[in-house]
Design a protein around this nucleic acid. Structure first.
Lengths: 262, 262
DNA sequence: ACTATTTATTACCCGTGGGTAATATACGGG
DNA sequence: CCCGTATATTACCCACGGGTAATAAATAGT
């Protein structure tokens, strides 16, 4: 493995350091994965730090090596979800198409995100459990997400792909329906997250689309089926995990991966 | 006022009794009104029974004259909301019309309900805070509500007023959007509950309606504008309160108004 | 006016759970 | 081989809040 001779003085202080930091970050993320799952299944207030620790085979105070407190764990969970949704928006905005096209793309990605743990954390966690500082961050971010929906609708009206309507209320209607997915969807159910996402994208946008997409019965193919994103690794353990956030590209791991500041 | 002479012996043992029970029930409902408002603005776990009591100018143990515990208060709040939504469904089912008509009526009533405190309690309270017994009641009731939406959609497909679609997912989409109103609507905002309800009813149903309701821009008049229902008296104190539940007719005050069992 | 019942208060208990201090163990570097 | 650092554990603190017991104040009925 490490059979390099003299360059050890230039690299050895770095490689060990890096690998140690990596190990630390992996543990940190393991805490978050466990925490978000527990917070979702038990509720933030019923889930104790002892529960989280126990599930990780450690004890409560060990958690304080990685986080300052329970509310910070909550915030970090939310924060991962936020980065994921931000990636959705960035991707969608980058791609071309009419306002309606963008709205549909975002709807599909957002819906799928809502079927994952980190996506659910965006809509099921209570802002009031956060510190005032973090709460403001979340509120601002939420407004930005709302803005994306509204902007797509507005630009759709402008370019003629969307029928005239109040962008604000239309965005509320669509986003609300999507957010609610985070409340009822369970990975074990009849529907796959993917199927729900496509169905919702059609159902929600055809109400305001100028050219109706009516074909045969329900769905058949949406525009460019986004093959198997598998975002958010919702405690599935099905092997194909991880690369989601790595492939999210550049934007990911920006401000997170701090920690260590005791 | 009470200048009736001998009939006092036939009425006096009844009127005082009734008036005493009425006074008790009014206090009970006052507790619930305060509790639901507090639970919504602070969140169930942050709102303490001391807070509730303080706002009523009493002390915590006094609450235990009317309720067995905090979770029962939560359940009773939820229960009032449930009766209100049940009334909506009963009314809608009683009235005629196509499946689409019924779906629209229910959507409007349900949306408006979601702008009130008791309506919000249906979607913002966490089932897991209830006792196992009450939790089952709520779950059953929720399924019934969902069923109403699905049935209207299904019957709409059958009678040709609704385009073919999966009733289950369509119901989820519509109900989800409506439920989300309970999360963002604030009585002080730009929109009135009524306006939101009508807008949503159009927006949500036109996506699956066979005959599109496109007129001019957005709304103008829905079918039979349900004048000023003012359901749920959300801590408004604007004089015209109360008769909502009284006018709900027969169904109301069925099982509630028990209490007293210490 | 006297008594019984209802309703409210004061004072208290105690389980829970977030957070911390003191301390032990693993580990990399010189 | 020893030292410093990072990481984990045990044992503890204590604020908070739901719930209760003892008791006082109001009210109805006779």
């Amino acid at each position: 493995m490490d059979a390099r001779y003299p360059l050890s003085n230039t690299e050895s202080p770095w490689l060990p350091f890096e690998s140690r930091r990596r190990a630390r970050d992996e543990k940190r993320e393991a805490v978050l994965r466990t925490a978000v799952a527990l917070f979702l299944e038990q509720g933030y207030h019923r889930a104790t730090l002892n529960d989280v620790a126990k599930r990780l085979h450690i004890t409560k105070p060990a958690l304080y090596n990685y986080f300052r407190g329970k509310d910070e764990i909550l915030f970090e969970c939310w924060s991962i979800g936020h980065e994921l949704v931000d990636d959705c928006i960035a991707e969608t905005s980058a791609g071309g198409g009419s306002g309606l096209d963008k709205l549909r793309k975002l709807t599909i990605r957002y819906a799928e995100l809502m079927t994952t743990d980190y996506g659910k954390s965006l809509v099921r966690f209570d802002l009031r459990d956060l510190s005032e500082h973090n709460r403001k961050i979340v509120q601002t971010a939420k407004r930005r997400i709302d803005r994306a929906f509204r902007d797509y609708i507005a630009s759709g009206i402008a370019d003629g792909s969307v029928r005239p309507c109040d962008p604000k209320l239309a965005a509320f209607a669509i986003a609300g329906s999507l957010n609610w997915i985070g409340h009822w969807f369970q990975p074990g159910g009849e529907q796959t997250g993917h199927a729900v996402a496509e169905e919702f994208a059609i159902r929600l946008t055809e109400g305001i689309a100028k050219t109706t997409t009516q074909m045969a019965s329900t769905r058949k193919k949406a525009d460019k089926p986004p093959r198997k994103r598998n975002v958010g690794n919702a405690s599935r353990e099905d092997g194909s995990e991880h690369h989601t956030r790595a492939a999210a590209g550049a934007a990911g791991q920006s401000k997170r991966a701090r920690g260590r500041l005791r």
